[in-house]
Computed example of a mutant assay.
Amino acid sequence: MAMAGGGGLNRSSSRGQMPPQELLDDLCSRFLLNVPKEELESFERILFLLEQAHWFYEDNSVEHNPNLKSLSFKDFTSLMFKSCTALRPYIAHLDDIYKDFNNYKFRVPVSGAIILDDTYERCLLVKGWKAGASWSFPRGKRNKDEEDHTCAVREVLEETGCDVSTLLNLDDYIEVSIGQQKVRLYIITGVKRDTVFAPQTKKEISEISWHRIDDLLPASDDAVSRGVNGMKLYMVAPFLTGLKAWIATHPPVLYQKSEASARGLFCSLMHPLCSGLQKLYVL
């Protein structure tokens, strides 16, 4: 299923009204002041909470009130530090805090899934919301104390609307390190190609569709981030070698059934001949 979607928000809109203090106070109370204390022990955790507040602001407040100004996460964070009493003392250090947070995000482990059709010839990819976004397997960052497989199920459900909890095998996964980030993708089979997919989150996924694995292989040794069809495959290419190796040792169930049927047909055809030869031998 392919999904049409507009471009994402790369920067703050130059139009619209700034959010009123009442709304900022509500966001501060909802996402910061009423969370467990351990969630406020580091600026990394605080900015993760502010990230959720930003999504809520964009997906709900701005969507329901078009007069509100759309903000980038950096501008939203700055506004919250200025508006929230608990954060205001640290406003002078915001640039360093924001920089450290971005570095931290690239170290948080990621989990997701490689979903194959019943022939193992196609896999499901999702495309990000922002303009120029690349394709990837459905995946996302692990929450604090979250298991890899739990994160994978959650992220696949959020990005595709497909619940793979009963299809996930803990032993079937491919794990690579991209920079300082560990990425583990579980291999999921048994998903029908006519399954209807729809993201459960707003403004995150613009398209969901099946793609032939052979078309995703790098066009050349120098084009590891683009497939033969020109698709951006930065988050796909590192897993293709491992995926092909896994498929080579795990024939699809459809193939196994066809092979078994062929053997059965062969035996049924050969049985009369074998019986005749046996009688001749006895005689």
Rank of each mutant, 00 (worst) to 15 (best):
155 E>S: 09
165 S>E: 08
212 R>Y: 13
82 K>D: 13
169 N>L: 01
265 L>Q: 11
124 L>V: 09
22 E>H: 13
25 D>F: 14
217 L>S: 15
139 R>E: 05
154 R>C: 00
86 A>K: 04
164 V>C: 07
75 D>P: 14
154 R>K: 00
55 W>P: 03
190 G>F: 04
113 A>L: 01
23 L>M: 08
233 L>T: 10
113 A>C: 02
171 D>T: 08
149 H>G: 10
174 I>K: 01
96 D>N: 05
217 L>Y: 15
269 L>H: 14
169 N>M: 01
35 V>Y: 11
130 K>Y: 13
30 R>F: 14
186 Y>T: 01
212 R>N: 12
237 A>V: 07
256 Q>R: 11
28 C>S: 06
157 L>Y: 00
278 Q>C: 07
30 R>A: 15
46 I>H: 03
250 H>N: 01
143 N>E: 02
68 L>R: 00
211 H>V: 06
234 Y>I: 14
42 S>V: 11
281 Y>T: 10
248 A>V: 11
248 A>P: 10
52 Q>D: 15
35 V>Q: 13
11 R>D: 03
247 I>V: 11
85 T>A: 04
19 P>A: 05
123 C>S: 05
41 E>Q: 09
84 C>A: 08
73 F>H: 12
201 T>Q: 15
258 S>H: 06
236 V>Y: 04
32 L>V: 09
140 G>K: 01
120 Y>D: 06
35 V>I: 11
78 S>P: 10
64 H>E: 08
270 M>Q: 10
247 I>T: 14
273 L>R: 14
280 L>T: 12
72 S>V: 05
213 I>L: 10
119 T>Q: 02
72 S>C: 03
50 L>H: 00
113 A>I: 02
14 S>D: 04
4 A>K: 04
64 H>N: 08
255 Y>N: 08
216 L>R: 03
205 I>S: 11
161 G>W: 03
